[in-house]
């Protein structure tokens, strides 16, 4: 644990002694602040125009009109900005030769991977934490239901950590930081859009697919052709599907489990990738 934290802490110091942390946090706050401001202005204009009509007034809700779009856009920005952080996590160690220090110290690969991940997670936390000032502004003037905001933040944080895990995994596979960044970006996008085809393949069941692959043996073995469809599977993998509920303020453990397993799997695979690289 001490080793993991030492690596994480060193990583954090590096972020904050280089422009990286300031640029990433600054740009993130600037753009999400702008979106927040824009939707807040629109909301207050609507309130002014329809404020005396009780029917419309009931439809106007600060959580739906300001907070939820804020989380939606933050999700997109994370998609764009996390590759810039994750690309260097392991690729940089390899390039500067410091990997030779880490892997000849009495540390396990898992400790190194976890330490690097936690360091980057701290930066993510600072990015997201900075935006908490926006809801605080609303809170100082009004009294909205807080639960959607808190749940939304949990969702954003989990999504960011999942992206980071995937990014670290890709960073472990290459020494080239550009390749690591583009690869991470592609992987995130894929995770977001993979459910787009869900509708189209909703009639294909998984067991049917296995049946075809096994040349009919599946059916003969009496395993059945019903069950979940390929479309369901794609929906289950998709990050988009799992983030929606959080932004609505609905806390569902299934989604939390999903994110935690993505994080765990990517860190586990990172450890395997590093171990296997030694043998080349």
């Amino acid at each position: 644990m001490r080793n993991t934290l030492a690596i994480a802490w060193r990583e954090v110091r590096t972020y904050f002694t280089s422009p990286l942390a300031y640029v990433v946090i600054g740009v993130f706050l600037l753009i999400s602040g702008y979106i927040f401001w824009a939707s807040l202005v629109r909301f207050s204009q609507l309130c002014l125009s329809y404020g005396n009509n009780p029917y419309y007034m009931n439809l106007l809700n600060v959580n739906d009109m300001v907070i939820r779009p804020l989380f939606g856009t933050m999700g997109i920005f994370l998609l764009l900005m996390i590759p810039a952080v994750s690309m260097r996590v392991l690729a940089e160690e390899r390039k500067s030769g410091t990997a030779e220090l880490l892997f000849t110290c009495p540390l396990t690969t898992a400790q190194v991977v976890l330490g690097k991940f936690l360091g980057a997670a701290f930066l993510l936390l600072a990015m997201i934490g900075g935006t908490m000032t926006f809801p605080a502004i609303i809170l100082s003037k009004a009294n909205p239901d807080l639960k959607p905001t808190l749940v939304g933040y949990l969702g954003i944080l989990l999504m960011g950590l999942a992206f980071l895990g995937i990014g670290v995994l890709i960073s472990a596979m290459t020494e080239n930081q550009i390749v690591a960044a583009v690869g991470a970006f592609g992987a995130f996008l894929m995770f977001m859009v993979i459910n787009w085809a869900a509708e189209a393949v909703s009639s294909v069941t998984l067991s049917g697919l296995f049946n075809k692959l096994s040349l009919g043996l599946w059916e003969k073995a009496g395993l059945g052709l019903g069950g979940p469809s390929l479309g369901d599977l794609l929906n289950q993998i998709s990050i988009t599907e799992h983030s929606k509920d959080f932004y609505k303020g609905v806390l569902d453990t299934r989604h939390i489990v999903y994110y935690l397993s993505v994080i765990f799997m990517s860190l586990f695979l990172t450890q395997r990738v590093i171990e296997s690289q030694k043998w080349r």
């Binding site: 060193r10 590096t14 002694t17 500067s96 410091t98 990997a99 030779e100 000849t104 009495p106 540390l107």
Partner: peptide, 21 residues
């Protein structure tokens, strides 16, 4: 490996330095 690494001090060919530290 951990027991071995505990007992070793190693200077690689390219010194493993964090330039920004």
């Amino acid at each position: 490996p951990i027991e071995v690494k505990r007992r070793i001090g190693y200077l690689p060919e390219h010194p493993p330095l964090y330039r920004e530290m």
